[in-house]
Design a binder for these strands. Structure first.
Lengths: 168, 168
DNA sequence: ATATATTTTCAATAAATATTGAAAATTCGG
DNA sequence: CCGAATTTTCAATATTTATTGAAAATATAT
């Protein structure tokens, strides 16, 4: 397989992958493109490679910056802005986990705390099942929260070797 | 907070949560409703509670069954079909992980294997960056695959206590 | 300061996805 | 087998989400 074809497949499947995880296709594709680009790219580079409009490119780059996955690079003597993605995949994963934890898991746990305190007689099976469900989701969620915190702090080497031992 | 209000909040936020994870809102809401229902429900029950059409209800129930999260229940003496969700949240999480691993992670790893074998001179920085990226994603993906396999087999108590020790 | 290059915004539009509802198929008791 | 109850399908429609492109804003060189 030629590089050009391999790149296309990588970008397109990274985009499809993203859509299964609530990330829009273009954002994932821009990220993929930057991951495999040895040098920083301009908006125009991305527009051309991915055949997307300027507005779309701009908005999705900014979103990637918000997620902490892409950053602006200043190239001396250049008027245009350049962008580059973090290439260390472990760091990328940790960053995504960190953001999703903050945006989704933590608000969910807060809500469950409130819902656990529902009024009503626990002998009513409707109340009991509701509370039991909420409590058990909360318990698992709290454990996940702690585990992810540890992961976010960990070095890849440490993390992998711990898992190795754990799952020998 | 009254039960009725708490239920609504739970269902609605479970639905919103789902959409962040590539699951459609209605499917997540049906799942939520079944999770907090002490007894099995019919399609008509769900239609009424969630204010959705018969067709929508039917399709999403079937999808939940495909995911292994819901099952049909036969109630003797009843003509209608009843449905119930697995209530053990650890089992639910394992089932979701198992399915997503099969549907997404494994195909991705297969693709990366192919892409790693791209033609071209590794001294070309475009080739090098591409291969390096593919290899590092693959490495981490393989580790995740193994870890998730272990998790899928694990009992919750064993899993939590292992994590505890690991991240003491 | 002015002209020009570049980035950003956002209303309009397109595309993708979800939902409806009624017809067709199936199931099941009698 | 018949007929009523129930489930399933799917074309039409509605809704949501993504994308465009041109105008406005901003930045920079001279």
């Amino acid at each position: 397989m030629k590089l050009i074809e391999a790149k296309q497949q990588f970008i397109s499947s990274w985009g499809a992958f993203g859509t299964h995880w609530g990330i829009n296709r273009t954002m994932a594709q821009i990220h993929a493109l930057l991951l495999i680009s040895p040098d920083p790219l301009t908006q125009d580079d991305m527009m051309e490679e991915l055949n997307i409009s300027r507005g779309n490119t701009n908005m999705n780059i900014r979103e990637l910056i918000n997620w902490g996955l892409v950053e602006r690079v200043l190239l001396s003597g250049e008027r245009k802005e350049y962008f580059t993605a973090e290439k260390d995949i472990w760091k990328v994963v940790k960053q995504i986990v960190k953001e999703r934890k903050k945006r989704e898991l933590e608000p969910m746990l807060q809500l469950l705390d409130k819902l656990e305190a529902v009024e009503g007689d626990k002998r009513d099976k409707h109340v009991k099942t509701f509370v039991d469900t909420v409590v058990s989701i909360k318990k698992l969620g709290k454990q996940a929260d702690k585990t992810l915190d540890t992961m976010i702090k960990a070095e890849e080497s440490w993390f992998v070797s711990s898992l190795m031992k754990m799952f020998k």
